Simulated scan of single mutants.
Amino acid sequence: MKVAFVGKGGSGKTTLSALFARHLAASARTVVAIDADINQHLAVALGMSEDQAFLLPALGEHLPEIKEYLRGTNPLISSAAAMVKTTPAGRGSRLLRPAGDDPIHQRFARPAGAVTLLATGAFTEDDLGVACYHSKVGAVELYLNHLVDQSDEYVVVDMTAGADSFASGLFTRFDLTFIVAEPTRKGVSVYRQYRDYAAEHAVPLAVVGNKITDPEDIDFLRRHVGDDLLVCLEHSPYVRAQEQGRHAPLTELEDTNRAALDRLHAAVDARPQDWQHFQAQAVAFHLKNAAAWANESTGEDLAQQIDPGFAHGPGTLQALSSS
């Protein structure tokens, strides 16, 4: 299952991304966490030191190599240079498994405890004024477009803050999106934006209340988000200690907050995967991007990259493995 955490800056989405990834991994599941935020803090939240986080290889700095591998022998893609962030998989494309034995995971993935971590890379000084962070995040979109996740395999993505998540089709790549909201007016503002965009594209979402201190906080969130409020996490001394660099086993997290993580896990597992819809969304956003800018940028008609005979999902992956 593919899961995203979104929210305004400071809402706690990175902390919750890390807690949830660790919670899943504690059950001996395959868990890949991806830092797709412009501020790269997920590695440290997962327990890495600042020095270890600094040394993480950046997906966003190696797009040509990633594209070259993923296109495989797909005859509809003329070259890696003709691939863009929305290019969908087709026959001949290389498909990925979470934390699989492939060059992308071997080169870019690093262990963070029991979690496998990938990072887009930070927005550097060289990028200022000349680059868009969404070009880096494009590596994550390509990764997810070519990923086949199965039972007990999870990908948890810490998205960039606010409505910036909608600058590409990346927001449609998830089985469930958790909107992290504090019990304030600003805290629920991103929820309203995300709810409206998500409704247009059949993106399933749920709200996670965070930094709750009393029942009035829950009442406030319930008034503003209604039935989309799935669960709330209380203000956490455990999280505060973690943010201060004092990491402890997840078993020491407060009982109420561990129960909240159980609720999130149950909600994710209850979502059915619809691979036909997943591929249709990828195609729709690819056509949209092709018409808006990508055809002109590459000098090709990128609609020709779409393979109408390709069926995404475990069946295709199994057939490729057998062959």
Rank of each mutant, 00 (worst) to 15 (best):
A4C: 11
A292S: 15
A58M: 04
A119V: 00
N74P: 11
W275V: 10
R263M: 06
K67V: 01
E153D: 06
T86H: 14
P57T: 06
A139V: 02
H277P: 10
D307I: 01
W293T: 13
L95W: 00
L229Y: 12
S17Y: 09
V130S: 07
F285V: 11
V32P: 02
A18H: 06
Q106V: 09
P215E: 07
G90S: 10
Q304N: 11
M1H: 13
G12N: 01
G10K: 07
G169H: 04
I77D: 11
T30N: 08
P183S: 08
T160Q: 14
F174W: 02
Q273K: 13
D51F: 15
Y197I: 14
G187T: 02
T116G: 02
E141S: 08
L320W: 00
D101V: 00
E216F: 14
A267N: 11
T14W: 06
A267K: 07
H105W: 01
F220Y: 15
A290M: 04
Q305I: 09
Q242N: 11
A119S: 12
V231C: 09
V6M: 08
L287I: 12
E125D: 13
G187R: 03
P308F: 05
H41W: 08
A266M: 13
S151N: 15
V268L: 09
D152V: 02
A267H: 08
H312G: 09
D196R: 12
V148C: 06
E243Y: 05
L287A: 07
Q193N: 06
K2A: 07
L46D: 04
A291I: 11
G47Q: 12
L287H: 15
R185C: 04
V155T: 10
F178D: 09
L24N: 12
N145S: 15
V115K: 05
T251Q: 14
P75C: 10
P272I: 08
D158G: 06
H277K: 06
E296W: 04
P98I: 00
D307A: 06
A292M: 11
Y194G: 00
I66W: 01
R71M: 10
D175P: 03
E252M: 05
E50H: 14
G315Y: 01
F166I: 04
K288L: 11
A89Q: 11
S168V: 07
Q276K: 13
R97K: 12
H235K: 10
P183F: 03
H265E: 15
V203T: 14
L170E: 12
R173C: 02
A58R: 13
P57M: 00
A294E: 01
L63T: 14
N295P: 01
A45G: 09
E216I: 00
A122Y: 08
Q304P: 04
S165C: 07
K186N: 14
A282D: 01
E200N: 14
K8G: 10
R185K: 11
Y69C: 03
R97T: 03
T15P: 05
G90D: 11
G313C: 08
T251F: 00
A248Y: 04
L253H: 05
N39H: 03
A89N: 10
R246V: 14
G313K: 10
L142C: 02
